[in-house]
């Protein structure tokens, strides 16, 4: 999604994206854009490890838990364009992106990759939209690597957060209260861990009530020897 410049556009885009596709905590969020810096050559990319919002002085630290080939840097998000180049990267979007995305996602899955568009010797007055497109395109390999890394974690996180097998089928077929659903959820997870070769549905299919199902699962768990090691 192309957000357009500035914090407001970015925050709105993150919220819209979430509402539109119903993002999950396991999803990755990646903000790709341009930034200025005093000395880093134009066209180079940086993965952001610290974001400071200049206006509020709030700070966030993206959690980079994967191996990567791109250098990292701190970044300051400004409200207005600036030609005062500093030793930090600066942009106009990252703080808003991160602040919104962290409410919807998981810290390790939210990242910003910035390509240097201007510096003290090649100022932003010489940069146009076509240049930006070219700079970003030149970093496609880096972007793909980043996405691949995040995809692995996203998959792992999705598995961790997944409902246990047959959970939906069971709550659709029998009436469970909210509290019983929580019990069932936990019992099905334990069942999968302990009796991976046993079909749970055939164990409970003659039961008439949620309570009877919960009792059966609990009894089976209680009456079977528990071995923690292989």
């Amino acid at each position: 999604m192309i957000t357009g410049p500035g914090k407001l556009n970015t925050a709105a885009a993150v919220t819209y994206h979430h509402a539109r596709i119903g993002t999950q905590p396991a999803d990755c969020w990646l903000n790709i854009g341009v930034a200025g810096h005093k000395t880093i050559p134009v066209g180079e990319a940086r993965l952001i490890n610290k974001i400071t919002d200049k206006q509020s002085n709030a700070t966030w630290y993206p959690q980079i838990i994967f191996k990567h080939n791109v250098s990292c840097a701190a970044l300051i998000t400004l409200d207005k364009p600036s030609a005062t180049y500093q030793s930090s990267l600066f942009d106009m979007e990252a703080s808003a992106f991160y602040q919104m995305a962290i409410r919807l996602g998981t810290a390790e899955m939210i990242h910003c990759l910035k390509v240097i568009s201007d510096n003290a010797s090649q100022t932003m007055s010489s940069v146009n939209a076509s240049d930006v497109k070219q700079m970003i395109t030149a970093q496609l390999e880096t972007i793909n690597d980043l996405v691949e890394n995040l995809r692995t974690f996203s998959h792992e996180l999705a598995l961790i957060n997944a409902e246990p097998e047959h959970y939906q089928t069971i709550i659709e077929q029998w009436h469970f209260t909210q509290s019983e659903r929580r019990q069932l959820f936990r019992l099905l997870r334990q069942w999968t861990t302990r009796f991976s070769d046993q079909e749970v549905l055939s164990t409970i299919d003659r039961h008439k009530t949620a309570q009877a199902i919960i009792r059966t699962l609990e009894d089976q768990m209680k009456n079977t020897d528990f071995v923690i090691h292989d």
């Binding site: 490890n49 610290k50 700070t59 966030w60 630290y61 959690q63 980079i64 838990i65 994967f66 990292c72 701190a74 962290i102 409410r103 996602g105 998981t106 810290a107 390790e108 974690f153 792992e156 996180l157 961790i160």
Partner: peptide
């Protein structure tokens, strides 16, 4: 990679972190 911070809680106590993923690195 050295990253300066004001107080460790800015990193350590933030919500939305996943202990299991972070334990990898």
């Amino acid at each position: 990679e050295i990253i300066a911070c004001e107080r460790y809680g800015e990193i350590f106590n933030r919500k939305s972190q996943n202990f299991r993923l972070q334990k990898k690195k």
